[in-house]
Design a binder for these strands. Structure first.
Lengths: 229, 229
DNA sequence: CGCAAGTATTCTGCATACAGAATTTTGTTT
DNA sequence: AAACAAAATTCTGTATGCAGAATACTTGCG
């Protein structure tokens, strides 16, 4: 099985102007992370440094560095002498992560109501409205991505980097699960209803209500995804 | 300034029997992390791959991999073209982290009361009593380490890996701050009092009380360390 | 004496080379 | 044909080499 003579990340990088100041390291991390999230690298798969490097058009050295980075994030596991393996998350892992995310988003809701500027909140409203358009037209993928963006945005509103960071790492672990979790119409509608309340509580700067609905939203998320694991 | 011809991590590793199955990668990560926590690598320092590699007795390749790992943890920052720099945490960073840790320990307190076995709790009691002996003899360093161990142990009692993981990464960022934070006798006594209540609530499996005291303990920790940043 | 431009050196980032461990294939025996 | 053993191959882990960027140094000029 020959490695597809594909598109080189390095060329991408060199092609960019001075605007995209990201390093090749970050590009590889982002690319491999996406491959894991989108299932191109299935959980449990042993990552072959030669093949993957060839596919991405980079040598093993920067690829290995990226894998260590992802290992620290918890997306891959390192087994000494046997390289990196795409981490498998059990149903319990997912549930546990959602419990923690519930607590983190609960805290974020409280802080966001205190810290956010009116402009910040309008920005979230814009994302929300856009997401609702995607719901109206039943465009799953854009809806999914906007959904993620809204949650990340609320985390950023807290202006608490540590909070945004830990939320981000847990979120990344679950992104794949949510990505595949295509819930039915009634569950989707319930999720949308949650989001209506989220934006409403945020605009009212009702810390308790926002905190509560975000935590409950996480619990309901578990109900939605538990069968697709 | 010549690099000290020191003790090689690689030799350490080769010297070990089959018991210590940790890889050289993990050894380097642990060593550099300790150097950061203990201040041997000061915040803001640019890490010189050649020098540090020489000091540890390893080549640049595994060292660079370890630095990427630590970058993901947030202990070092990568600036493209300029290598790795030991991350500086501002007072706000520390406060923000403590706020998140407060929420996480609060959650952990609730979960620990549900999930812990009696044996688990006895183990924490043992650590607690041992820590109290160290307090009695005013042995700061052992006290400090046991203190950390107790908090980590409570996190493990939850049997929630995701929770323990995010707690661990934030904890690592603060370890250096706490390490240097030598509070006076009355503040130390107050911290000890908190710990008495923690173990008492845990043994009573009083989830609300344990959750509360752990969160408050974090807030008080901020009061203790805020002036030493 | 200060400052700037140009040069020299050092350092990072990536690729490659090499040794040893892990795995697969092959061959042999029952 | 199955199972074990041994050889061959593949793969990982580390060191080293090399190009280009970043930094330090030197020299010339105001």
């Amino acid at each position: 099985m020959a490695t597809e003579a594909s598109h080189s990340l390095l060329e991408d990088f060199e092609g960019r102007g001075p605007i995209a100041r990201q390093s090749l390291h970050e590009a590889i991390v982002a690319r491999v992370r996406d491959m894991i999230i989108e299932g191109e690298l299935a959980p449990g798969t042993r990552i072959h440094e030669g093949n993957l490097g060839g596919k991405l058009g980079v040598s093993r050295t920067p690829l290995r560095e990226a894998l260590k980075f992802l290992a620290s994030e918890g997306l891959v596991e390192l087994s000494p002498g046997r390289g990196a393996v795409v981490r498998q998350f059990s149903a319990k892992d997912v549930y546990d992560s959602l419990v923690v995310l519930g607590a983190l988003e609960g805290l974020a809701g409280r802080l966001a109501c205190e810290q956010a500027t009116d402009k910040d909140i309008r920005e979230v409203r814009r994302l929300h409205d856009h997401m609702m358009e995607m719901y109206a037209s039943r465009d799953r993928l854009p809806y999914f991505k906007l959904n993620q963006n809204i949650h990340s945005a609320i985390l950023r509103l807290t202006k608490n980097e540590a909070l945004a960071y830990v939320h981000g790492t847990l979120q990344a672990r679950l992104r794949r699960i949510r990505y595949i979790g295509n819930e039915g119409p009634e569950k989707w509608a319930a999720a949308v209803a949650d989001h209506e309340e989220i934006i409403s509580a945020l605009e009212a700067r009702d810390a308790e209500r926002l905190s509560k609905v975000l935590t409950v939203h996480m619990e309901r998320t578990w109900e939605r995804v538990r069968n697709s694991i």
